[in-house]
Each structure stands twice: as C-alpha cells, then as structure tokens.
Design a protein around this nucleic acid. Structure first.
Lengths: 199, 199
DNA sequence: CATATATTTAACCGATCGGTAATAAATTGG
DNA sequence: CCAATTTATTACCGATCGGTTAAATATATG
C-alpha cells in the first residue's frame, strides 16, 4: 500500500511525506553519525516534532536502521545502473567504481563506512545489514570482473572474487581517506592505479 | 621534568601514574569512540574522579587529543621497529604491514581510522594530527618500497610513493572491514594478494 | 452534528551530559 | 606545630539526552 493510499484512512492525515522525511533523517545521520545526532537535530532538519518522528518510525535506533536501509537501497540502485552503460565490461567497472567514489566525495564520506566503524562492533542489527550489502556488492563486482577477464580487459590471473575483495577493501579505504584530505584527486588516483595494474 | 620529579614538589602528591591513566583513557576512546565515551566511562575505567582527570589533562577534548597522540606514538614505534628485522626489504615490508593489521585485529580496529571517520570532518585538531601521521607513514612505506624495488623484490613499475598510497588506502580499508567480519583470515588474505601482485 | 481515529503539538519525565566550585586530605617548608 | 600548596573528593550546576503522556487538531464515517 502506498503512502498516498495509507493516508486515505480515517483520522487526521499525515502532514509530511514519509520518504522525504526519511531522506532528511538519512542525511543528518550520514553527516553527524549516530551518537553525534540528537533527536533535536532530526527535528530541526525535518521540521517535524519528535512525537511525529516517533510515531512514524519508532525510536532513534529503529529510525537509524530505516535511514541506513534507505541509503543502501538508494545508492546500490544508483551505482548498479552504471554497470550496463557501455559494451566494455572494464568501462562499466570503472564507471561504477567512480560513481561510488563520487557519492563518498560529494556526501560526507560513505554512510555505510561511517556506520561500520561507529556502530558495527556493538550493534548486531547494523553489523548484519552492512554484512548483507557487503556480500551482494562483492558478488556484483566479481561478476563484472569475470566479464572483464573473459573479454581480455583484465589480464591479471586471479579469481574474480578475490579481486573483488581487493576492490571492496580499496573502496572502504578511499571512503575513509577522503575524510582526512581536502584534495580529492589523490583518491581517484589510487583507484585508477589499482585498476590499471590489472589490465 | 619527569613525572617522578614533578611529584617531589610541595603539596599533596599525585596518587596515580599519568601515563598509565592516559593509556586506560586511550583504550576507552579506542573502544567506544569520542561521542560514545562519557566522562563517567573514563572515571570507571581509570578509577579516578573527574576532578583528577580535569586537573591532570584538561577537558574531554584535550584529553582525547592526548590519548590520540599517545596512540600514534606508541603504535608507530611498535610498527616501525619491524622495518629492520630482516635483510630483505620485502620481508620487512610484510612484517610491518602484518603488525599494523594485527594491532587492528587485536584492538578494536584502528583508533586512527575510528577518529578519522568520526571526528576529522568537524574537528580540525584531530584532522591535523591524523594528517601529519599519515604523511609520515606513507613516506616510511615509500622508502621501504623503494628499497624492495631496487632489490628486485618488487617488479611492478610504479613510483614508490604511489604504491605506498595504495598500501595506505588498503590498510585503512582493512581496518574498516575488520569491524564487519568475525573471520580475520579474509583480511590478511587481501593484503597478501595486493603485495604478491607486485612481486 | 457526533463519534471514532489518527496526527500534531507541547508539556513533562528521570537520567545523563560535560564542566565547576567548595571542601577535605596529604604533603613540604618554615 | 603552623601556614602554604597541591591533590582528592564530593556536591552541585544548567543543559541536553532519549522517550512518554496528554491535550489539541483534523479527518472519515454514520
């Protein structure tokens, strides 16, 4: 049932769009982290009162999980779309990876990395969500790498899954490194060096 | 003037060792992060009252900076020592990198990475401290890589500084990835794959 | 218009936050 | 033994934390 349909029921109708609010919440958590974000911050950002947020999404932790889930869906959809733009698998891989880096650079790093570092060690829910998306992404990369190898665009002899593991770690490292440097050329440089060493 | 000498002055002598307290504080911040650590946590961990901590180290932020500085000194000394154990530069490089990974695995990840992600974007002091140590470490790695190249142990044709940049990013990525996986084999695997592709 | 239902708003809760001030205890020098 | 000085300890501060409760408001239904 869609938001609009749900709003047709009895009682006072909701005065805000759930998805729009969730996106604002996501951006706030993305920027300030979980502990660094107070309910007041979320109210200020969304323009909603805490009662509304509680009723619509649950407590702070549930709200965070939903924001994180929204981030995962949103970015994966955005990134995965880049895997089919060109005929060349390697071009698709480059396009995809650069999109990931761009998201990190334009946002405040990568929200998954932020959450992984801040929360995963003591939050099983977050750890599991991130773990799931990690596996999916690595498999996605491995597929792309496999195609590039079969096309002769990657000549290094190594299993696709292990090369994908290297890329996953590299992306995580880039998302972290971004936070310490103002100059982002450095970042794309590293990614390109890794990729070109495989050709 | 040393701690013991300072303690010889007039007035009630200090009832705790400053460095031991700082190490405990460091471990607490390392485990829980900055926002996630309250003054009460620090008091519980050290067994000291907040007044004592304030007087000895300053406020929470100063205390964190000193703990971070202690971490940087301590780990760098520990890690750099591994660069001179063997005759082979490549063996030294492997030994050093594995020590870095070991520190992350045995501790709660890498405190520098944690701080980079949580604080660097909005804390200039932290950002600068981490930036300094980053440059030093990258240069240290570049030197080692240069030696390995001259010894013919690294055959890939690429400037040492750029290979060092790859390693720095890889290490950051590993320190992050550790937090999401219980199995640490995966981690050393990736590092070894990167290194062996350079031989 | 009356009732039931859902949302909005504001007041309120105890707990905890980082930080300070006042007092007690321990030491050195006279 | 008596100041002077430093540390240890306790009590306390206003602010904010996440979360709840209750009243006001707005809609659909009958």
């Amino acid at each position: 049932m869609s938001q609009a349909e749900k709003n047709k029921g009895v009682g006072r109708p909701r005065g805000f769009e759930e998805e729009r609010a969730l996106e604002t919440v996501m951006n706030t958590f993305w920027e300030k982290g979980y502990e660094g974000t107070s309910f007041k911050d979320l109210c200020l950002a969304t323009g909603l009162h805490k009662g509304s947020l509680y009723q619509a999404f649950g407590d702070k932790h549930q709200l965070f999980l939903k924001a994180l889930g929204y981030y995962i869906e949103r970015t994966f959809k955005n990134v995965a779309a880049r895997a089919y733009l060109h005929d060349s698998p390697m071009d698709n891989l480059r396009s995809l990876l650069n999109e990931v880096v761009t998201i990190s650079i334009e946002g405040n790093g990568c929200m998954l990395l932020n959450s992984l570092v801040e929360m995963a060690p003591h939050d099983p829910d977050v750890k599991e969500m991130i773990g799931r998306s990690y596996v999916i992404k690595q498999r996605f990369l491995a597929d792309l790498i496999d195609k590039a190898q079969r096309a002769g665009e990657i000549t290094i002899k190594q299993e696709p899954d292990r090369l994908a593991a290297i890329l996953m770690v590299t992306l995580a490292g880039l998302a972290a490194t971004i936070k310490g440097f103002s100059n982002t050329d450095h970042i794309r440089h590293v990614l390109e060096d890794v990729l070109s060493s495989w050709e």
